[in-house]
Computed example of a mutant assay.
Amino acid sequence: MFNHNISIDELTALFLADTPLIDVRAPVEFTQGALPGAINLPILNDEERARVGTTYKQQGAEAAVQLGYTMISGSVKQDRMQQWLDFIRQHPQAVLYCFRGGKRSQITQQWLKEAGIDRPLITGGYKLARQFLISTIDRFHEKHRLLVITGPTGSGKTRLLHEISHRYPALDIEAIARHRGSAFGGMGIPQPSQVDFENQLAINLLKLSQNAQTNPVLVEDESRHTGRVCLPASFFEHMRSAEIIWVDEPVEARVNNIFEDYILATPIGQAHQIRKATTFPDLVGKTGATPYQQALALFDQYAAALQAISKKLGGDRFQEVSLDLDFARSDFENKNEIRTNKVWIEKLVKYYYDPLYLGSLQRRQVNPCFKGSKQAVIDYLHTRKAT
């Protein structure tokens, strides 16, 4: 008898435990969206799935199933079985799923059973689990309040979330989106697909629900879009109707925060440290030094991001900031100097981000329950009564 398969009522426990998942759908399906924690070990590859689908349309279900068994036999079957077995030996709690919990996961389950491995599958498959996760997002507002941390660019809002997370449950949307939310906000790694972003957001909300019995959940003020991904409408509306705290830091502090995040904590800062510790002439112009290559590529990305906002920035100011960025790059290449990056960062804050952010807050008629420095906000949150 098979292990008890996973019903919709058991999905919360499944996701809270970060259960390893085997997605036996074709790679094209997996790329479009998958459950967090899943590895793609398909029973049919993309070409095989297409052939089975065509046969199903032309000849019916029985012929399609027979074709599948014919294609996945002999060494092909052995190879795919071995991949499943290897993964399960490393992750004995693994659970299977396909799109609807139908033939593909059932056949995988049967073959594994014949090999002496008994693993459950998700009843209803990816489709049902996806509906469950979307419902988790849509219904989060029914039991949990949000407390939104706002403030101009560079105020240290994300850092504040992490520093206070021992006192309040906190949601880092930028970490889930793998993007800081601005034209310069790419983190050097690909963003998730929209579906994967929503799925991971739902998992994070499930986990926060376990720790948010009284306190509101803290979240940074974000626009609907973070890079190329978009917050679900229900959650965004929940954010917009939430109580707000305003972090108010001076420009100098904000420029330093941005410098740390976008220069020191990037390949630019890494290459700077390496070059300080190495004979300087040996590294100048050596594109074979990986951190150095990455640093120059990041300067290119910043120049492209600046170009992308050139119309909003205005022609004269765009030229001014571009020259400052070029000068900072030249200082880095020729003198291993990185502090001159603060010049273009400060101008970008004053010319572009402050008018953009503060204008948005004014249009929304934001009325914060508290406004103060980052440390004052932390002190306020420590003394705020849980409700």
Rank of each mutant, 00 (worst) to 15 (best):
D138N: 13
L171E: 13
I149A: 08
H141V: 14
H162Q: 09
L160K: 02
E163A: 15
K143D: 15
H141E: 08
T136P: 04
E163K: 13
L171N: 01
V148E: 03
T136R: 04
E142W: 06
I164Q: 00
T153H: 00
S135R: 13
L171M: 06
T150R: 11
L161I: 02
R167W: 04
I173D: 14
L133I: 00
H144K: 07
T158Y: 07
E142P: 04
A170V: 07
Y168T: 13
K143S: 14
R145F: 10
H162A: 05
L146W: 14
I137K: 10
A170S: 15
F140Q: 14
R167E: 08
S155L: 05
H141T: 06
T150S: 12
E142C: 01
A170E: 10
H166A: 07
I164K: 00
G154D: 11
L146P: 15
L160Y: 02
L161K: 06
G151A: 04
I164M: 00
R139W: 03
A170Y: 01
L133H: 05
S165E: 08
R139I: 15
L133G: 14
T158S: 11
P152D: 04
K157F: 03
K157L: 01
L133M: 14
L161D: 01
P169N: 12
I134E: 09
T153C: 00
I137M: 04
T150K: 12
I134H: 11
G156M: 08
H166T: 05
S135T: 14
S165G: 07
T150I: 05
G156V: 04
Y168E: 06
H141M: 09
R139G: 11
F132H: 12
I134K: 10
K157D: 04
T150H: 08
H162G: 12
S165L: 09
G151I: 02
S135P: 03
D138R: 04
E163Q: 12
L171H: 03
P169H: 05
T136L: 03
E142D: 11
E142L: 06
T136G: 12
G156T: 09
R167Q: 03
H144I: 08
H162I: 01
I137D: 09
L160P: 05
D138H: 13
A170H: 12
R139E: 12
H162C: 11
P152L: 13
A170P: 14
P169E: 10
S135G: 06
R139T: 15
I137P: 00
H144Y: 02
F140P: 08
I173N: 08
T150Q: 02
P169M: 06
I149N: 07
L133Y: 10
R159C: 07
P169G: 13
F132S: 11
L161W: 06
G151D: 00
S165Q: 08
E142K: 15
I134R: 05
L133S: 07
E163Y: 02
L160H: 02
L171G: 00
H166C: 03
Y168S: 06
I137R: 10
G151N: 02
S135Q: 13
D172P: 13
L161H: 00
T153F: 02
L147E: 01
E163I: 14
T158W: 08
